[in-house]
Nucleic acid binder design. Sequence first.
DNA 1: CCCTAGCACTCTCGGGGGTAGACTGCTAAC
DNA 2: GTTAGCAGTCTACCCCCGAGAGTGCTAGGG
Lengths: 345, 345
Amino acid sequence: MVEPELGARKVAVLRAVVEEYVRSGEPVGSETIAERSQLGVSSATIRNEMAALEELGYLSHPHTSAGRIPTDAGYRKYVDALPPGGKLRDQQRRAIAGFFAETMLDLEDVLRGTTQLLSKVTQYAGLAVPPSGSEDTVLRVELIEVGTAIMVLVVGQHGGVEKLLVERPDGVQPDDLRRFERRFADRFAGKPIAEAQATALRAAAESPGAERALLLGVSDVLANMQTGARAHHIVVGGVANLADEAAHWRRETVRRLFEALERESEMLHLLRDVTAEDISVTIGAEHPATEEWEASIVAAPFRAGETALGAIGVVGPTAMDYVSVMASVRAVARRLSELATELGA
Amino acid sequence: MVEPELGARKVAVLRAVVEEYVRSGEPVGSETIAERSQLGVSSATIRNEMAALEELGYLSHPHTSAGRIPTDAGYRKYVDALPPGGKLRDQQRRAIAGFFAETMLDLEDVLRGTTQLLSKVTQYAGLAVPPSGSEDTVLRVELIEVGTAIMVLVVGQHGGVEKLLVERPDGVQPDDLRRFERRFADRFAGKPIAEAQATALRAAAESPGAERALLLGVSDVLANMQTGARAHHIVVGGVANLADEAAHWRRETVRRLFEALERESEMLHLLRDVTAEDISVTIGAEHPATEEWEASIVAAPFRAGETALGAIGVVGPTAMDYVSVMASVRAVARRLSELATELGA
DNA sequence: CCCTAGCACTCTCGGGGGTAGACTGCTAAC
DNA sequence: GTTAGCAGTCTACCCCCGAGAGTGCTAGGG
């Protein structure tokens, strides 16, 4: 694709239009831009620039006598042209600092809180994808009698816990459980989840009845740690903001958005893909998922040390305050990484 | 309060108005009722009855030349007059049976699925309150090294697991942990959560540094099992339906509803209160919470054997299909109780 | 005494028409 | 390259009006 090099003034006009539209929610006219932007040119000049920007596909026109609104491509251009280090408003900075000053030691709680923090700070909805566990290793395997069943419980190196009840195999005694537990410890402890899972499955095939059933249980639990259960869920906070900010969202769009948040899987892919970069912005039609609901997603990964754990982000209308949201997401991701590094070290 | 004894025909008219309004979403006229209900009287008679019902506070009038809509009191009267055993539509029966035919062994997953089932079957949103744990007893206490911290993990008799990371006290060795673990087992195993928590707290006061820190951790975990963490969360499914059915809900109302679902606490009280009865219906202004968002909640408790565990329910507009929703909630609660009884036995 | 037919009355909803206002795009001058 | 000025276009809004829906009331009938 040819990247049309825009003049500095066109960029300035585009920025002014985006920011004014985000602020007011209404199509922006040339007069407004001429007044509010510090460009020192008349509205006629702005009109010419706007016409050019429309030609280039960055702005559009609801109808002849209306002002301009940015297209998805326009938002993209705007975001890409943004100066790298965004500033937080004091209030936001304080909210974020305050949140991370509290001591919280359970990652799940932290993420839940994080989504609420993001939604409070940005006025949109906050998202978080918990660690998938695929980088984790097995720390401990426990077999515990619960009622008539056996609970298979695995603890990961990063403090993740996953459990499953399996039917108690006939004739298994408490002593047997302890014996199995020791055997499992020898076999699995310290191994990466995926490898341990494969081992468990292989071992199950060669083992007699009782141990077989338990090994299958272990395998299931490990499978869940990798891809299932906790890891398949995204954490969402502040969804009420979506129904509100929705002032200029159609009902139907809101409904679709909620459905997607509940289906989780596509949202998950979208956020997982983010893990490679520093911060990523997906705008409207750029992604089949977001196209459907005219939304943008700003997301950033968080890490413990060098290993990527998960991602956090914000969903909002394409007409969102990108500067502020990007700064917030980046700041929260950084703090979260620090916290995770500290915990996991 | 004087209970005005309504004539049978008034009850029939009220029922017809409620059902027609729920079906169509529009104010109902006397003509419509005369045609569709099998009362065999003319619209003029219906008009008289309607005027009387309005006088009694069961119906209201958006404006002079509009039909009637039920008031909250009208819905209440209608619900109370409903014949006890509601019938499920075949499709609903099948969906419910299918859901419970799958083997699921983790209560949390089951509840999550339950809310989605309810929302699918009723077209409103499904709710569930997990067991509070206050009826639970301690099955096992584990101390596990995770990174630089110690994870305190407690398993309850019903298979609930709760954990917390605490900082590792200075100079604690793996052997010490195992020693503490044995001591904790002697002290806490088999005791009710509340009692164990009190014991842990008392013991902490009398113990030296290292053990003290861990006992405090145990106490915190037990406290969470009773009232915190998991128990403070409600499970919600199918919220997208609220933004949809909202066809005749104001945006603002939808937003408030979502906020409440996220705040959780008031919703929780509302549902906890339900635990006493068989099935409970809260309509609009009957409860300060539901008044604000013009919604009704149909809820029922579920039990394992004799002990009440939690509750499930459905939130929807006051103009909901009570017959169908009540039948569904009742059926799901019954199946869920069976399942829980089986698991906990 | 209850029910019903009929009718006058009320009020909303939707469409038509006309206008004010907001922008644009163009042209011509600087 | 920029700007002032102006004609042209399209929407949003207001007002008005008539159709239609539904009520309440009254008078008559079983």
